[in-house]
Design a protein around this nucleic acid. Structure first.
Lengths: 225, 225, 225, 225
DNA sequence: TATGAATGAGGCTTCATTCAT
DNA sequence: AATGAATGAAGCCTCATTCAT
């Protein structure tokens, strides 16, 4: 009867008895997708559990309650995305090139992670209370600023960047343009049509944004192309 | 709060008999604030009605159901904000000045109307389904683009604007920067501190954004100041 | 403005101000159809009023409450149907022929008045409380039995009818077969297919029923055909 | 009343933990009685639950919604009644005797199960929509026809039954007379007095019906007694 | 570690009816 | 005679959570 069921207990096997970490990941994956799709109050524990290979009890066992699950899902969503950013290597590049690459990457990365964007939108609806409570998330973002600070200071030293460039304000600019592109796509395309979100138009937008941001920090000696 | 509704009934009286328009406005004002605060699924009909001078039954009498109330609240929120924009007179100004003024105004206007911003955030969580269904809202936004199109064509004629400036993409830029400033303030200040949102810093940000947007359309002959 | 609108105030004109009897009939016609379709608790005052050219207030003005409207609708339904029966002239016919004709007529009449049948079904669900309270309805039905009693006594005198034939039990038989044919058509055809209710089959059934009932009262000297 | 449900829990104890089948039966027994008494729209979930040993929530847990409960109650009512019919053994009897017994039994069985009759009445008010959706109910009724078909073919072979006897039409006759006797008792006795429904009169009616039905299929060589 | 059964509080909505004009 | 506005009571259903095994 119960012979070798636990062989392929990795992902998507029919049942994984005795794999606590697998159970947690399974639940969290589904939770992120459900919370991202419907928000904190809109998501349903029953719906989450239905898409899971476990039972409802496990959610309470591992995460305490709905808020606990949401809080953890938010952390996982953040760390997934930030982990992707770590792979970007900018140290070898001259500051302006590094910034260009970073902006382009952020734009692409946000587009590639709509669930993360939606989690952050939902957090903002909830006044970012759960972000505020998570040391982990705050830690992850310090790193993001450090990267920018590094670029800025190198750029300032080289004389390429304006001296008054503030890494946080720069991060704000990059985020605003990349974030809005994903977060407000539904309303924007409902109002003005879906054209702006085709691959062709997004490429144009991406270039424009890079030009914009880079233009805003560069010591302007010559016209932008 | 409910200042604008005292048409027929005495102000702040406990109940007003037979003032349908007043009742509707009363409900809608509260509804906007509750939906903006808690989202569509998070808002409670009972909470809305508690802040109202009417009974729960009237919500269903006038708006059918929760979705109907939300849909109407969204329309009212949009029209309130767009009405504010109409008061802005740009026709007398040269294109670059007009754009500058428009960007600054949008930045300020969004800050002044956080409930509207939150309604749009919530709509995006719901894939903008209600915006899509509302001819009224779509109509209001056509006007917003027309204003920009006008500026762009004047600017192109004068030779001040780049010829390839697209009013929709320009609107996107202005919106992105002004919208994000309000929508993501909670998460941004949770992560990087509240400094960016002080009046002083917001003024700097405002100028920066104006410079950014204007710079992106201007035929660049000389460095930006 | 208000010139000659009240010209065709008979039926189905757009509005009939000042025609109280017309208003009552309008309401009652709709009420019968709604109660017949959905039952006493299933019918909605709002739905009735929506199909009417009057306002909700009039229902309460004329009929007191929902039960009052139902009670009156039941009476009207009964009197409509019984009025149709009065036109049947059986006096000139020999008893067996009269009975044949009566059975056939009842079968047809019930089929032609499904709303009436449904009102009676609904009454039975409600233990016939409203019938019991209505002198009018009880009066109408005495007449129906009188007709049969007349036929029976003539038949007994002629020697055509069995002496123990009871007019009430005979009425019961005729009703049972004619009533069930309409009342249980939905369940019967759901279970056994709709064939029995085609015109062809109904003709066969009609003849069979006539044969059945007549056979049950006839002094049987020779085989039935 | 709830006698058959005391499988696991003590009888008449205030609450029984963890006896799903018992809970289901308990709810269904009450539901049948309430729906039969008041109809689908007339029945109240709160009233049902009040006569139950469980909470309102369990109705939704097991049956989804009011319609779901009604649909299942209808199925149970049908299967209870049809199960009673299965105990009737007609195979050993000659066709005419078998038919006599079947008619008499049906008459008695319908009288003994007024709740079932009322459920079918209610179904007919609702156009038999729920019967139509239930494969189970349709299946149960095929069996009923099979029994009759068997009798008819034996009768035809023996030369006792008319060759053109149709089992469905025969079933229709038996049902009409037995069903109406219960379904329309309230209106009939409201109109014509309760006499027909006394035991004495019902016995006479029963015999009459048997004679009627049997007479309608018999190859008529001699007068009926 | 795991499951299906059970729950109380509270959510949204509907209904017949009455009121003010 | 007539209308649209207003209402309280009650209806159905959902939700996060806990219990018994």
């Amino acid at each position: 009867m119960n012979r070798t069921t636990a062989k392929v207990a990795g992902k998507h096997s029919q049942s994984w008895k005795q794999d606590p970490e697998g159970v947690r990941r399974d639940i969290l994956d589904v939770a992120i997708s459900e919370f991202a799709a419907r928000g904190l109050s809109g998501a349903r524990i029953d719906d989450i559990v239905a898409r899971t290979r476990t039972s409802k009890r496990m959610i309470y066992y591992y995460f305490g309650d709905k808020d606990g699950l949401y809080a953890r899902a938010l952390e996982v969503a953040y760390s997934k995305v930030r982990r992707g950013e770590e792979e970007l290597d900018l140290d070898g590049l001259p500051p302006l090139k590094a910034l260009e690459k970073l902006v382009g990457f952020t734009f692409d990365h946000h587009r590639a992670n709509p669930d993360f964007i939606r989690m952050v939108m939902i957090e903002n609806i909830h006044n970012a209370d759960f972000i505020r409570k998570s040391d982990m998330i705050r830690g992850l973002n310090v790193a993001a600023i450090d990267t920018l600070r590094n670029i800025c200071s190198r750029g300032a030293k080289d004389g390429d960047f304006r001296a008054d460039t503030d890494p946080v304000r720069l991060h704000w600019q990059i985020s605003a343009l990349s974030f809005f592109n994903v977060s407000n796509q539904p309303s924007f395309s409902a109002l003005f049509g879906p054209d702006l979100f085709t691959d062709t138009q997004q490429k144009i937008l991406r270039d424009e944004i890079i030009r914009l941001v880079v233009g805003s920090v560069r010591v302007s000696t010559e016209p932008t192309t």
